[in-house]
Amino acid sequence: MDKKPKAFLFDLNGTMINDMEFHNHAWHSILTKDLGASISFEAVKKEMYGKNQDLLERVFGVGHFSQEQIDQISIEKEHRYQAAYKKHLSLIAGLADFLESAKKSGILMAIGSAAIPFNIDFVLDNLQVRSYFKAVVSAEDVLNSKPDPETFLKGAAILGIPADECVVFEDAPKGVEAAQNAGMKCIALTTMHHADEFSAYNNIIAFIEDYNDPVLKSLF
Rank of each mutant, 00 (worst) to 15 (best):
G112R: 01
G183F: 10
A182V: 04
A182H: 03
G175R: 02
N144D: 11
V142N: 00
D148Q: 11
S131F: 14
A96M: 06
P162I: 15
A114G: 09
I111V: 05
D121L: 01
K146M: 13
V123G: 00
F133D: 01
E165M: 08
L89P: 06
A114F: 06
E140R: 14
S145A: 13
S105C: 09
Q180W: 05
M184W: 00
A115L: 07
P149I: 02
S131E: 15
L189N: 13
F98S: 01
K154M: 05
A110R: 11
H193E: 06
D164R: 02
L99D: 15
F122S: 00
A114R: 08
G106Y: 02
D121V: 03
E150Y: 10
F122K: 02
D125H: 09
A157I: 00
A102C: 04
A102D: 03
Y81N: 14
L99C: 13
L159G: 01
C186Q: 05
G183V: 08
P173E: 13
K134N: 14
L159D: 01
V168S: 12
Q128G: 12
I120F: 02
A93R: 12
A182W: 04
L159H: 01
V129W: 09
I107V: 13
V136Q: 13
L99E: 10
F152Y: 11
V167Y: 08
D97M: 10
K86V: 09
A102Y: 01
T190S: 10
N181A: 14
V168A: 11
Y85D: 01
S101M: 10
G155S: 12
V136F: 14
V167L: 07
K86S: 05
N119E: 04
A157C: 02
K185L: 12
L99H: 11
T151H: 13
I161T: 04
Y132G: 03
A83D: 13
V176C: 07
L143K: 09
V129A: 15
Y81W: 10
S138F: 15
L159P: 01
Q180T: 01
A102R: 02
S105F: 15
I107D: 00
R130Y: 12
G160Y: 00
K104Y: 05
E177S: 14
F169M: 15
A83K: 08
V137A: 10
M109V: 15
S90P: 14
L127A: 06
L159I: 15
A172W: 00
E170A: 08
A110K: 12
E140M: 08
S138C: 11
V123Y: 00
G112L: 03
F133S: 03
A115S: 11
I111D: 09
D164H: 12
G183K: 04
A139G: 03
P117S: 04
F133P: 02
A93T: 09
P147A: 02
G106A: 06
S138R: 14
A188I: 04
D141F: 07
D125G: 05
L124S: 02
L189T: 09
I111C: 14
I92H: 09
I92Y: 12
Y81V: 06
